[in-house]
Every structure is written in C-alpha cells, then in structure tokens.
C-alpha cells in the first residue's frame, strides 16, 4: 500500500538516463534522479568536481537531460551565481539553477564560495550529496567524515579525529530562506523538500546523505538500509529550517542505538565498545542540540501566535 502511494507521488518524467557510470549501490545517482524529478526540465545544473563529474559521463556524453556545466572544484555556488544573473538578464526567472556538489566541494574547498552566495542570498538551489569523504579520488577524509571513520588518509590505526562539520547550522547561520536534510531512503520527504525549495526565491540548501558502498565498506544492496539506519539512529536527523530560525523535524520516531549502524560499515570495523559509546554520546549531544532548536522554534511560534491572537 505505502509502496503504491510513493510511486504515485513520484513524477514519471526521467531527466537522468540509464547507463551512468556510478559504482553499484551508489546513492548519488538515486539522489540526482529524485531531485531532477521534483525540479523538472527547466533546470540548469552546475557541477563542481565530485564523483558526479564522472557519473555524468565523459565528453561528448551526458547522463542528464538538462543543461549541465562542469565547474572548478571550489566554484559551485559562484558559477551558479553567474548563471542565475545571466538568466535574470534574459528575463528567465522560472528556470532553477541547481548546484550539485559533493561534501568536499561543499564542506571544504567550496565553502567560501557557498558562504558568499548564501550571504548574497543568490537565487539558487544548492544540493550537497554527502558521502562523507573524497570518494572520487579514493576515499580520503573530508571535514564531513565522521569521528572514528577509517579512510585512505585516516587509516584505522589513526582514524578521523574530529567530528563532522555541522554544515546545516553553518548555512542556517546565513539566515537563508530554506535549508534541509534528506536521504535516498526517504523519497517522499526528499521530493517534498525539493518541491518546497523550488518554489522559494533565494538561496536554498539541501544536504543529502549518500551512503557509499566502497567508501563506507558495506554491501551494495544495503545503501537504502544504511541511509534509513542513519536517520533512525539520529546520526542524520531529517530536518528543515527556514530563515535560519524555524527548525522542524520532518521525520520522527523512536531513536535507535548507533551501534548497529556503525557495525554494518567496514570503515568503523576497528572501533571498540568504548569508542562506540563515545560516538553514541556525540550523536546524543547533537540530537539534543537539534531538539532544542526545534523546541525553541516551536515555542517562538506559539509565542508569536499568542501575541498575534
């Protein structure tokens, strides 16, 4: 029943072709396919260097049926600002300019350009598909890599020693009109967020968790399951925030322990029980901080309702 309902709500039009060159089980093409379905054909994609630079296909091919500009690694938001300005000058306010960047191009090298664009409130939709490391170059750590993860530059004997950067809070601090998280395991939630974002003017940011079988080291038929577990464990809460202050959970439910999520992934295989407890403590800390943001937004809204009433 629920399957039928989901299929019903997913637009039929395919703006991504089959025959792309992603690894088996990769979440990134699933995310692109869903986002483009929600955006429709009046979309121009700006794509800084990422796994998707390859997935999109080598010249003269393209796995997208919308215009695509491959951009330098750190320039996604700036290049998109230019595309937007040109469209505005042509009187085209309808076409969505979509930046499609990985975590490296967003959390690290592209953060300055993204912050600049967000501060200017450029009328663009910025999607970060986050596979939590530099996967295209062979699984080197990024500032999106979670604490304790082994990568090719943070080997298991000395794994990632810092916690994942809170990119959503950083974007929210720019007070952009819309920012949200999403995953490929929650297609209706994802579609609703993209549809909502599409209708808003200004900078919109979508952070999509994209489990990576070779990078996280899990079986390639477990991608959706991993994304679902990340949400259920509270590692990756599904939220949205408007104008940097109105926070809302978009999926709630019983919190599950983080252990089973970690144990499913080879990148955490070296962790002992004590380290799993540390991760649980950090997940709890972040979850509680998020809950306080949401509750504070709710009480603000109640307050303003009371004042208005």
């Amino acid at each position: 029943m629920s399957q039928l309902m989901i299929a019903d709500r997913v637009p039929r039009e395919e703006l991504m072709t089959s025959g792309h060159v992603a690894c088996p089980g990769c979440a990134a093409p699933i995310a692109m396919r869903m986002v483009l379905k929600a955006l429709g054909p009046k979309t121009i994609v700006v794509m800084p260097a990422s796994c998707w630079s390859i997935i999109a296909g080598p010249w003269p091919q393209s796995s997208l049926k919308v215009p695509l500009y491959h951009a330098a690694f750190e320039t996604g938001a700036a290049t998109a600002s230019g595309v937007r300005a040109a469209l505005d000058m042509q009187g085209d306010t309808e076409t969505t300019v979509l930046v499609w960047a990985g975590d490296g191009g967003t959390f690290d090298i592209g953060l300055q350009a993204l912050s600049g664009a967000a501060e200017r409130n450029e009328n663009i939709l910025y999607c970060c598909y986050d596979n939590e490391a530099y996967m295209n170059t062979g699984i080197q750590r990024s500032s999106a890599t979670p604490w304790g993860a082994a990568t090719s530059t943070t080997p298991a004997v000395q794994p990632q020693s810092t916690h994942k950067k809170d990119i959503l809070a950083i974007l929210a601090a720019h007070r952009i009109p819309y920012a949200a998280t999403a995953t490929v395991a929650h297609p209706v939630d994802l579609l609703e967020k993209v549809t909502k974002a599409r209708a808003i003017r200004g900078t919109r940011f979508l952070h999509i968790l994209a489990p990576c079988p070779p990078g996280w080291k899990f079986e390639d038929d477990e991608t959706i399951e991993l994304a679902r577990m990340a949400v259920r464990a509270g590692v990756f809460p599904l939220v949205e925030v408007e104008h940097g202050e109105h926070w809302r959970f978009t999926a709630e439910g019983a919190r599950e322990p983080v252990g089973p999520y970690l144990r499913k992934q080879g990148r955490f295989r070296h962790l002992g029980e004590e380290q799993v407890r540390q991760i649980q403590a950090e997940v709890d800390r972040r979850w509680n901080a998020m809950r306080r943001r949401v509750e504070s937004s709710e009480s603000d809204e109640d307050g303003s309702l009371a004042e208005g009433g």
């Binding site: 750190e74 998109a80 230019g82 595309v83 300005a85 000058m89 501060e119 200017r120």
Partner: peptide, 26 residues
Amino acid sequence: ARFIKVESEHSAMAACIGASAAGARA
C-alpha cells in the same frame, strides 16, 4: 546589468564563467 559583489576574485571569475556560459556578456 547584474553586478554580483562576490567574496573573492576567484568567485568573480567563476561567476563570469557561469554568466558567459549562460550566454551573457560578462
């Protein structure tokens, strides 16, 4: 014209690249 007041020269040229690729005189 649209004047994009960017946060660096690097982004200035990136924005010109995006604008020019979309057909504008940049």
